[in-house]
């Protein structure tokens, strides 16, 4: 932490976060960019999956009283289940994040304020502040998009606690990966293409873990241990990326 006390570091982090918030509120580029992308994609997605929803409605209408839960699950299986809905929602959020989250660093480079920021706060605090900001941004978009998505696709909530922890873990991992890759791409003076090309392979691995956690959450009555293992896997990826980024960010930041 480059020789400053924990309190000073926290203060610096919070200052960077506040500064990001203020710049964002001035122009609202990131949030409106991500939100616009997410909602357009949402509409496209709903149109494209119309047949899947119809198939599901037919399957539901075939259900008889007194059917076991397993039989219902089997009847529903080929169509559009919880896991695939979750997967599509996250693909949507992934691409939305990769359109907007680079903005914090790109704007810094364009405005030429990098040097000032480097002088006033230690690199890890800059990283932490920007990560916090990106996380909040993504969280805000997710909170807006998810209910609409659920209503449009007929995705059920299931266990609210599990859903919440999967969504939060997803946001954390996604914003962590996107933040560090954005820093890298901005320093490489790369276009948005470079950012997506570098970030998406890493995030694909995370999607696999996410879908794994979603499929566990979807099984009828999963044991607490399985949930802990699979949802915990999600968080361990996010924490691993954050820890490594904290160590590597100074090398990107200081030229």
């Amino acid at each position: 932490m480059s020789g400053i006390s924990g309190k000073a570091w926290r203060q610096a982090t919070f200052t960077v976060f506040k500064k990001e918030m203020r710049t964002e509120l001035r122009s609202r580029v990131s949030i409106s960019g991500i939100a616009l992308f997410a909602f357009s994609a949402l509409i496209l997605l709903t149109l494209a999956t119309a047949t899947l929803r119809e198939a599901q409605t037919i399957a539901f209408s075939k259900m008889l009283d007194g059917m076991t839960v397993e039989a219902i699950a089997k009847l529903r299986y080929p169509a559009w289940d919880w896991v695939s809905k979750m997967g599509l929602l996250w693909i949507l959020l992934f691409f939305a994040a990769f359109t907007g989250l680079a903005h914090t660093f790109v704007q810094e480079e364009e405005a030429g304020t990098t040097l000032v920021l480097r002088m006033v706060s230690p690199p890890t605090a800059v990283y932490a502040g920007k990560l916090l900001f990106n996380f909040m941004l993504l969280l805000a978009v997710m909170v807006g998009v998810t209910p609409v998505y659920m209503a449009l696709t007929g995705m059920v909530i299931g266990s609210p606690f599990v859903l919440l922890s999967v969504m939060l873990g997803g946001c954390l991992g996604l914003s962590a990966t996107a933040t560090i890759v954005a820093a890298l791409a901005a320093k490489a003076k790369g276009s948005g293409t470079l950012f997506s090309a570098l970030g998406l392979p890493l995030v694909t691995v995370f999607l696999l873990l996410l879908l794994n956690a979603a499929s566990t959450a979807n099984t009828i009555d999963p044991s607490a241990l399985r949930l802990l293992r699979d949802v915990g896997g999600l968080y361990s990826f996010a924490i691993g990326v954050i820890a490594l980024s904290g160590m590597l960010f100074p090398y990107i930041w200081e030229e």
Partner: peptide, 22 residues
């Protein structure tokens, strides 16, 4: 930096993804 950063996903890919119950 990118090489080290991608070490997390690479390790997950080799050791964890093939063992996912899903």
């Amino acid at each position: 930096v990118y090489c080290l950063l991608a070490l997390v996903p690479a390790t997950f890919l080799i050791w964890i993804v093939p063992r996912l119950p899903w």
